[in-house]
């Protein structure tokens, strides 16, 4: 379980998060949604232990999150974070050496699923294939928590759909929890259990997506717009 308690994060004088409290139950796919600059990425980085809160606590399975929490958390950055001179196969090798929980077989299976050429250099990959490769190396880790910052942004519909299908095929919700940020709500909404809506560093609401459809007869996009305008 992930617990955030009264978390404030300031970048110099700018407040990115203004006292958020949040609980994420295991076995769910959770979407962190909100406008640009609302604090989504900051929240993910705090959980991944890449940032420290100014105030408050971030707990992952009861443990205070810091750099070493990467044993339990796989984090997919919105930036391209790998060596461009590596080939696809070398990138997978590199991850396999870095993380002891890396499942080689799963990675190979996913490379086939994503139709990635193992001998191609990362710098020669298209943006879509770089996006796919990032997904492969993140999902091949057998960790309880998977965090993804904008896994779909800037990718074409075919890539987006292969990433979504890859997510469903290779994630084990009995053992894993996924938290992702996205603006591609229409595509991702059938995938989500719960959403956390953030605005200006404050959590507006945390809700089950099926409840939104059931009780308010709204799609996720309409719901978000409605809440944002209130």
């Amino acid at each position: 379980m992930i617990q955030l308690e009264g978390v404030v994060k300031r970048y110099l004088t700018k407040k990115a998060l203004d006292g958020i409290s949040l609980q994420i139950e295991p076995g769910h796919i959770v979407g962190l949604i909100g406008s640009n600059g609302s604090g989504k990425s900051t929240t993910l980085k705090l959980i991944a232990g890449l940032l420290q809160p100014t105030h408050g606590t971030v707990l992952v399975d009861g443990e205070v999150s810091n750099r070493r929490i990467c044993r339990k958390v796989a984090y997919l950055s919105e930036l391209d974070a790998y060596y461009s001179f590596f080939t696809v196969a070398q990138t997978v090798d590199f991850y396999a050496r870095t993380f002891s929980d890396f499942n080689r077989e799963k990675a190979e299976e996913m490379l086939d699923f994503m139709k990635l050429d193992r001998n191609q250099k990362v710098k020669h990959l298209s943006k879509g294939n770089r996006g796919r490769l990032k997904i492969v190396v993140t999902l091949a880790r057998e960790v309880p928590f998977i965090l993804m910052d904008e896994p779909l942004s800037g990718l074409d519909p075919m890539v987006r759909s292969s990433i979504i299908k890859g997510l469903i095929s290779f994630i084990d919700l009995e053992k894993q929890t996924v938290i992702l940020t996205t603006h591609e709500l229409q595509e991702i909404e059938p995938l989500l259990d719960t959403v956390v809506l953030i605005k200006n560093g404050v959590i507006l609401e945390q809700k089950s997506v099926e409840d939104i459809r059931c009780n308010e007869n709204l799609s996720l996009v309409d719901w978000m717009v409605e809440k944002y305008e209130q």
Partner: peptide, 8 residues
């Protein structure tokens, strides 16, 4: 997978 929805 077939319908791209959450297994839950």
């Amino acid at each position: 997978i077939d319908s791209s929805v959450n297994p839950n």
